[in-house]
């Protein structure tokens, strides 16, 4: 277990949960990231009834995700095992591999209506059977891919 970072990962998880809770209690919205950017991409979607700023809140949320990550990295430049810092992060594989993965992530989360945040955090927290099935399927599939490709 040389890579296990229980403290920073639990604290980060609690923050993600708090972020999801704030959006739910404040605005009645699920913090599902694929859904949030999916709704502002073309083709234009039907704006939900009685909802203020259907585009603006989503853009602000996404921009804040970037700024939040940046501020955290300035305040805590070295966390986790071996002094993890944001600038040490690298994508894995050649550009074609990365492009294929990106396409599948976008396509799959749109067709399946959610990702790790929407199904994994908010969906499971509200006892959605649909989300439980989605989470089991995408975790199992991803684990099989990692085992088959030997990417780690």
């Amino acid at each position: 277990m040389e890579y296990f970072t229980p403290v920073s990962s639990l604290i980060g998880g609690l923050m993600i949960g708090l972020a999801s809770a704030i959006l739910w209690v404040g605005n009645g919205r699920i913090a599902g990231i694929s859904g949030i950017f999916g709704q502002i991409l073309p083709p234009p979607k039907n704006p939900a009834k009685n909802s203020p700023n259907p585009i603006m809140w989503r853009v602000l949320f996404l921009v804040s995700m970037i700024i939040g990550g940046f501020i955290a990295s300035v305040l805590l430049p070295n966390i986790g095992v071996g002094g993890f810092g944001g600038d040490a992060v690298q994508l894995i594989g050649n550009p074609l591999w990365i492009a294929s993965a990106g396409l599948l992530v976008g396509l799959g989360t749109k067709i399946g209506n959610g990702c790790t945040s929407g199904h994994g955090v908010s969906g499971l927290a509200r006892f959605s059977l649909r989300s439980l099935v989605a989470v089991l399927v995408f975790f199992a599939t991803a684990a099989i891919i990692v085992a088959v490709t030997g990417i780690v």
Binding site: A19, I67, G69, I71, A72
Partner: peptide, 10 residues
């Protein structure tokens, strides 16, 4: 919410 989410991911 977005800011906390991004910080939590980092």
């Amino acid at each position: 919410s977005g800011g906390l989410f991004g910080a939590g991911l980092y």
